[in-house]
Design a binder for these strands. Structure first.
Lengths: 282, 282
DNA sequence: GTTCCGCATGAATCGATAG
DNA sequence: ACTATCGATTCATGCGGAA
């Protein structure tokens, strides 16, 4: 068994047992939102906050093994409130991962535009989550141009420029230069984003609530992989990251332990792969 | 000497030597932005990242002593990049403060709308900073209603004040999922905020550059103190937090070591206190 | 009196160069 | 080898002069 046997599939099982079957340095990006810590033990799969780091470390070692040297590992996570305080397991996890050899390259933020309402006497609604970016090497693959955002109202700017100072330049290239000129302007009207992603929480287009909106994995997939690369989600949940990878012409491998999520992920992936080749323009 | 001798003054000196003169449990809120870690030693006061925690802890002990039981300590800080990685001194500081008895109640975020430019092969512009909220007790003073936002008015005013050009720039990033979508705020009367503060850095228009915009300390002062309460900034810098406290009818104590900043803080405070009682509506 | 455009500048970071 | 310094890169913002 090698990684190629798992391409474009969701595996039903424990990541700790599935990941060893993958080949070394065969995955270009890992993007995942692991089960959050939960002090209630009644729910299957809930990990106690105090045990979170020791639970995650063996899995992280496998992730490090399967990741390519220029690959990235994006971990979407947020600490729970325990006893009125923020628990420190995420901080401890970062420190522990560094000790295991991961580089903590950056901490991106997901700023949730519409988050669940709620009011407590000692805190407000939690409107952000961490997207920790780990790499194996200081040099890694990063396609910054793939996530550029338009700076302004493109049409307005274009028309305005066309009417005044750029008209001379435009005329000089009349006949053959229009497209070229516009392309230049487009380039200038695009800006690189920051390390804060301001996205709405996608409460699930279907009957289920995804852990994160599809735009979140999409953004990191565009940023850290090329078409054809392999994207791994070791806690696939409803398969959002895998669907995102497929839609972006990347290959995916998902792993999910829980029956209910596994079946849901299969449904979502089947639906995504059944769609004809009319992909969204990105 | 007691705390009352320091009310509404900026002290010129080292917090480690000034704070012991304050009375126990005499300060209702500490809001500060300490000198950031800096590996370059040329600037007086730059603390090496590896020494940051041990430098800060003795000061934090004094802060804990002077804070009231229901008081809050808000620490605005952000880790530097060292050798291509995020340094971990802030994480270690949180863990160390907890060991000293502080409760890490919440992590608010300052999402900087305009942040310093830059383009690098391995990261984007850094657009956020931490505002760590520590308390001495699970029960603390919190006036949630004081920071409710009149959403409709705010959006209207904001949109009205923006020129077309600015409006285009402001809205430009909304469509792609980055930046603030103003349309979300229209039509709602009042709402509690989240734990993310979306503020612009006050840049350049004045003759000095404040570490944080006045709105940042103002927000926490309104939230965690009543009128007449004492606000302490042990690293006063240009005195922004002290000015904010004075404008909100709170009393303030500032401490600043560096000559240049101390004089600047004096100027700003004098100016603020000279103003007649026509306070800005907040 | 408005609106618009140009421009300086900021709690930045990297890579190269110099000592 | 290691540290310190400098230049290049880059965009939101507000101010001031121009139209």
């Amino acid at each position: 068994m090698t990684t190629s046997d798992f391409i474009d599939t969701i595996q039903h099982g424990d990541s700790l047992k599935v990941l060893p079957k993958l080949s070394e340095a065969s995955v270009n990006l890992i993007v995942t939102s692991p089960p959050y810590a939960d002090s209630r033990k009644k729910t299957y799969g809930g990990i106690h906050p105090d045990k979170y780091v020791e639970w995650f470390l063996p899995i992280s070692d496998e992730l490090q093994r399967v990741l390519t040297g220029d690959g990235s590992f994006v971990l979407n996570i947020k600490e729970k409130v325990v006893g009125g305080e923020r628990h420190t397991y995420v901080l401890e996890l970062i420190l522990a991962l560094k000790k295991r050899g991961w580089l903590w390259t950056e901490e991106y933020l997901w700023h949730k535009r519409n988050c669940a309402p709620g009011k407590w006497p000692n805190r407000f609604r939690d409107a952000w989550e961490r997207c920790l970016h780990f790499t194996k090497d200081k040099k890694f693959k990063m396609n910054q141009d793939a996530v550029m955002v338009p700076m302004g109202d493109w049409a307005k700017t274009r028309l305005k420029r066309l009417s005044d100072n750029d008209s001379r330049r435009f005329n000089s290239q009349a006949g053959s230069g229009f497209g070229k000129n516009i392309a230049n302007w487009v380039g200038r009207e695009m800006a690189y984003p920051t390390n804060v992603l301001h996205l709405a929480t996608e409460c699930g287009n279907k009957n289920h609530s995804a852990a994160f909106p599809k735009e979140l994995p999409s953004w990191f997939i565009k940023l850290f992989t090329d078409a054809g690369d392999v994207v791994l989600d070791p806690f696939a949940g409803s398969g959002t990251a895998c669907v995102a990878a497929h839609e972006l012409d990347r290959r995916f491998i998902g792993v999910e332990l829980k029956d209910e999520y596994y079946r849901l992920a299969l449904e979502n992936i089947d639906e995504a792969m059944a769609e004809p080749a009319q992909r969204k323009l990105i």
